[in-house]
Nucleic acid binder design. Structure first.
Length: 561
DNA sequence: ATTAGGG
DNA sequence: CCCTAAT
């Protein structure tokens, strides 16, 4: 099957799916698999309730970040998902079941997939994996662009959720009588295609939901309220979130590097084949069982199957290819920094591998436009479209948060607090320059923010020296002498993180210049400055002169000697 | 790592 | 303030 044919095939499925034009049975038949066979295989369905619970725990353990705005992130999503499970463990079976017997493993499928892949998560997902994903995405994109989802000007994706049915159930906490049907990972193919259309069939359920219900569902899913009253918007977000169930599995499915490059070279290896592979339930299921018993992770699955999983995910995500781009984990600024510092070397290597396929595409991918330094543009998944919001710190799976970060962060905040303290200290200690003190605080905050981006030369925000600071400096010089900037800094400016010893030195130099009675030129400048900046009191200037005499600068010292 | 000095 | 050379 040629590439074009593959693409056409995929598009067909997707489009049909979105329009619900193909029934599940038809879809299944397309693959030559009779749904009855699926049902017949009883081993697929029995899933113990505790299995569900296990899943729940699985997801409860990992990331417990504060729910942030990044609703697209897998972390928060899984968290919410877990939440939902708690509320109704058997959620989602009913509605699908009404559609087709084979479909009732729908939701469970998602769980299983997650479960399946969550093992690999801890193993550490490598950047390359993500790159690989992007490769896939991009590849898929070609096929999908002509679908109805090109329009993604807005932040959300107009997905007429495949999972609408589930959503409905979740939001209403409907519990069907059925137990958790052990949806096998192999069900993925069979299920998801039906899902794609099944949702459309069930979209009536979504439509039936009131705004309040939608809001509730939204809250359950994303852990936050929304003020949006647009039904479409809510539905899209909800369905989008549900769709994430499959996305993460993709992302988490590590160790795909090899197959990734494989896919790179010949592009996605026949999505059709991929789906088809999934039809071989017995095989995959076998793996699944093994895993249950022996904790055999997905690694055990043959690379072929894994490839299939990956490829399938593209399919299953339907239009979401575009979504996926956005859903790609947004790293925190911290993470970016760290990556720059620690991983640049590794990335260079892995990028060489993955770039050939992904890079050029990614580069003209708007949402991936990376505003990054140096060889970082090749890491699409680090794109940070939205400004970092401290509330939601999402660290990509497998990318451990180094303690250094914590330290750094702590230090930074320390600095801020200290500077605030300094402000108050100054107020009490010195003659009180309240405005200046405030300036200190704000300035500190600012500089603390800019300092973090070590790399590019961003000039430190100009911070005027407050009179109190000058006084302290002079005092320090009088005590320790000129040139002991580190000492002075340590004892008198320890709390002000924004004044380095070099700053002190520079300031002293300037004071010296200002103090020594100079030519008219100098005075002119001085008088000119009077209007804009602070005027250094004569008392201080005098003191500076005295100190200059006592502690001449080295050069002058030499001259004196 | 500090310091001096030029820019 | 930044950068760099010298120490």
């Amino acid at each position: 099957m040629s590439e074009d044919e593959q693409g056409e095939f995929k598009s067909r499925i997707l489009i049909n799916g979105s329009k619900g034009g193909v029934t599940f049975n038809e879809t299944v038949n397309m693959f030559g698999k009779n749904p009855a066979q699926v049902v017949e295989d009883g081993s697929f369905f029995p899933a113990l309730e505790d299995e569900v619970i296990a899943v729940e725990n699985l997801f409860a353990v990992p990331k417990c970040n504060a729910l942030g705005d990044d609703v697209l992130g897998f972390n928060s999503f899984s968290q919410h998902t877990c939440f939902n499970f708690e509320e109704c463990p058997t959620v989602g079976y009913g509605s699908i079941k009404t559609n087709n017997d084979t479909l009732d493993s729908n939701t469970n499928l998602s769980e299983k997939i997650k479960e399946e892949f969550s093992d690999g998560v801890s193993g550490g997902t490598d950047a390359t994996v993500l790159d690989g994903k992007n490769n896939l995405i991009d590849t898929c994109e070609d096929y999908l662009l002509d679908t109805e989802f090109v329009d993604e000007a807005s932040d959300f994706n107009p997905i007429k959720g495949p999972y609408v049915g589930n959503l409905n159930l979740e939001s209403k906490s409907m519990v069907s009588g059925g137990r958790g049907h052990g949806a096998e990972i192999s069900e993925l193919a069979t299920t998801s295609i039906p899902v794609l259309q099944g949702t459309c069939q069930d979209s009536s359920l979504l439509d039936k939901m009131t705004i309040d219900e939608l809001h509730e569902a939204f809250r359950n899913m994303f852990g936050r309220e929304t003020t949006v009253t647009d039904e479409q918007w809510l539905k899209c977000h909800l369905s989008f979130g549900l769709q994430n169930l499959l996305g993460p599995s993709n992302e988490n499915e590590g160790k795909m590097i090899s197959s990734t490059s494989d896919l790179c070279s010949r592009r996605v290896s026949s999505p059709f084949t991929a789906v088809f592979n999934f039809k071989r339930k017995p095989r995959v299921q076998h793996v699944k069982r093994e895993r249950h018993d022996n904790h055999v992770s997905l690694k055990a699955i043959s690379s072929e199957v894994r490839k299939a999983v990956l490829s399938f995910s593209e399919l299953g995500e339907k239009q979401s290819i575009l979504d996926t781009r956005k859903r790609v984990r947004k790293p925190t600024r911290r993470y970016i920094e760290e990556s720059l510092e620690h991983n640049s070397r590794h990335q260079k290597r892995s990028c060489v591998l993955s770039n050939t396929c992904s890079r050029d595409k990614l580069l003209h991918n708007g949402s991936y436009k990376l505003h990054c330094h140096k060889g970082f543009e090749s890491k699409p998944f680090v794109s940070q479209k939205e400004p970092f919001k401290g509330a939601c710190i999402q660290v990509p799976f497998g990318q451990p948060v180094h303690k250094g970060h914590l330290k750094k962060k702590v230090h930074e905040s320390e600095g801020c607090e200290d500077s605030k303290l300094l402000g108050s200290n100054i107020d009490s200690d010195m003659e009180s320059f309240s405005t200046e003190s405030q300036d200190d605080v704000s300035e500190d905050d600012y500089s603390a923010g800019t300092k973090t981006q070590k790399g590019k030369s961003r000039r430190k925000h100009h911070m005027y020296w407050s009179l109190s600071e000058v006084s302290k400096l002079v005092e320090g010089v009088s005590v320790y002498g000129v040139g002991r900037w580190t000492e002075i800094k340590r004892l008198l400016f320890h709390s002000s993180a924004n004044r380095t010893s070099v700053d002190l030195k520079d300031k002293w130099r300037n004071l010296l210049r200002a103090s020594c009675p100079q030519s008219q030129c100098n005075r002119k400048v001085e008088s000119r400055r009077k209007h804009t900046s602070q005027v250094i009191p004569q008392s201080i200037l005098r003191r500076v002169r005295e100190l200059a005499a006592i502690y001449p600068y080295p050069r002058e010292r030499k001259a004196q000697v």
